[in-house]
């Protein structure tokens, strides 16, 4: 049962990822990416990471993708990537390169034994994550606030109209 659910979600994730890189229209790609992010959130749920699943939907699908769709709407009138591609033969290199990378990552991630698995899952839940974030990871947690502030100021500077 769990395996069937995993297989279904994984197929949705793979299909939407392929749709993202193969569809010519950027808006279709953005919608495929939303589907992909949602399926990854479902995978987080099956791994017992409820907080991350919620954060994924809110931050990625809610905030980041809205920004993407907004940028696509502003920047691209109708269609994109028109005209002949002068480097079309070169781009076929991507397929063997991607296959090689996939083989390497698979060997590294799946092939190696890695650390010994622990039988019992962590006492999870939002409470455990919050406790971890405010004890062991307190300093990085505070740093992210500085990072977000810096990003905000930088975006304002970049998007300002030069007069």
């Amino acid at each position: 049962m769990e395996l069937a659910a995993f297989t279904l979600i994984a197929l949705i994730a793979l299909g939407s990822a392929l749709g993202l890189i193969l569809k010519r229209n950027a808006i279709h790609g953005a919608l495929f990416l939303v589907v992909n992010l949602g399926s990854v959130a479902a995978l987080y749920l099956t791994l017992g990471a409820e907080f991350l699943a919620a954060a994924q939907v809110i931050v990625y699908a809610g905030a980041i993708m809205v920004l993407f769709v907004f940028a696509i709407m502003v920047l691209i009138p109708g269609k994109e990537e028109t005209g002949p591609d002068p480097r079309r033969p070169l781009r076929w290199v991507a397929l063997p390169a991607g296959a090689l990378l996939l083989a390497q990552v698979l060997v590294i991630l799946v092939g190696t034994r890695g650390p010994t698995p622990v039988g019992s899952p962590a006492p999870g839940g939002v409470e455990a994550i919050g406790r971890l974030l405010f004890t062991d990871y307190l300093f990085p947690f505070e740093l992210t606030s500085v990072l977000l502030l810096a990003a905000m100021v930088g975006v304002l500077l970049l998007a300002r109209r030069r007069t």
């Binding site: 793979l14 990822a17 991607g98 996939l102």
Partner: peptide, 10 residues
């Protein structure tokens, strides 16, 4: 790994 490779190809 497969998703990452698809991203690289993209």
């Amino acid at each position: 790994a497969v998703l990452f490779s698809i991203g690289v190809v993209g």
